[in-house]
Nucleic acid binder design. Structure first.
Lengths: 163, 163
DNA sequence: GCCATAATACTCGGATAAGTTGTGTCCGAGTAGGCTAGG
DNA sequence: CCTAGCCTACTCGGACACAACTTATCCGAGTATTATGGC
């Protein structure tokens, strides 16, 4: 059970976007260069974010992406689910109905006991991610990153910011 | 992020094994027929369980699998990790080091802030699964399953039990 | 100087393809219990 | 009745095949900004 690497990419991209000045945009190319990942594939991941309204793209030169809502209103879960899809990690196929000693077409009421436990763990995972906002990540990065690195990064970004 | 269907299969198999009388074995074929899944592929999953000592197989006729330790000492996490592997769901490739404004070969101290949050969610998932034992599942099944279904199942199993 | 047009830089979406993983099948080797035949 | 050898049923492990998914790459269409050229 592995998450795609796109998840890592967009989380870092969102972190960058969250630290940008209000309204500033960054192009897919700039984000891809900054993280050293293929531009066109990253673009697909960012499109997924745009589709669910986490991020907002604009066309033309000086176009690019910016957060569609304040970073405090975007959770890790929002981002992960945008890329990875919202389904549960455990899919119950109701194999308990296949027992040859059961009458054919038998359907027990209530969800499978095994699935219930797996889903509860899944919910715990989701709760944890839902509790983490992008702004909290940005704050933490601002606190933990060495000052010289922050200023060098800010300088590099300033050259690539559109509008 | 989907778990394999093998996970569902072995969880149900373990539930059956946990409800068997002390020392009784059940062959892969019986388990596969009971759940309506391909015998040979299920066999691979059971081998994974045997490798980590959750289950114990024996050769020859009247051979088959039984739990290698009491059901109360087997957690859902044990079973899931046996099949799915113990790695984390989020793999951090340290793309924060790729920024072109950083000195080449730059390695920050401490784990990536993004990864820390993802790993915390992962830990919550693991904790939840580790807290659920096989015996708890067996108890719940004994309580919730209609009595007639239980006796029909018990009768079917009795014919297939070895030794 | 002003407007129309062209060039540019970006997003969007589809097509394609290689690599990896999940899913399933097949078969031979090894092992242990049961059955049969010969003493 | 006893024992040796065969048969059967099972696990184990490897090899193989197919499908789905991941991870890209490429290209054309659409759009908005900028640059250019004619008036």
């Amino acid at each position: 059970m592995q998450l795609r690497n796109q998840v890592e990419w967009v989380l870092h991209c969102c972190a960058i976007l969250a630290m940008l000045p209000e309204g500033a945009r960054l192009s897919t190319r700039a984000l891809a260069e900054f993280h050293g990942v293929p531009k066109e594939y990253l673009s697909k991941a960012l499109q997924s974010l745009a589709q669910v309204g986490i991020v907002e793209g604009s066309l033309g030169p000086a176009g690019g992406y910016r957060l569609a809502r304040p970073a405090s209103a975007i959770s890790f879960l929002d981002i992960v689910e945008a890329v990875e899809g919202g389904g549960r990690s455990f899919a119950c196929t109701e194999i308990r109905c296949n027992a040859p000693c059961h009458p054919p077409g038998f359907r027990p009421e209530g969800p499978c006991q095994v699935a219930r436990i797996m889903w509860r763990a899944d919910d715990a995972w989701r709760r944890e991610l839902a509790a983490q906002s992008l702004s909290a990540l940005a704050d933490q990065l601002g606190r933990e990153l060495p000052a010289d690195l922050q200023s060098r990064t800010a300088g590099w970004l300033k050259k690539r910011i559109s509008s």
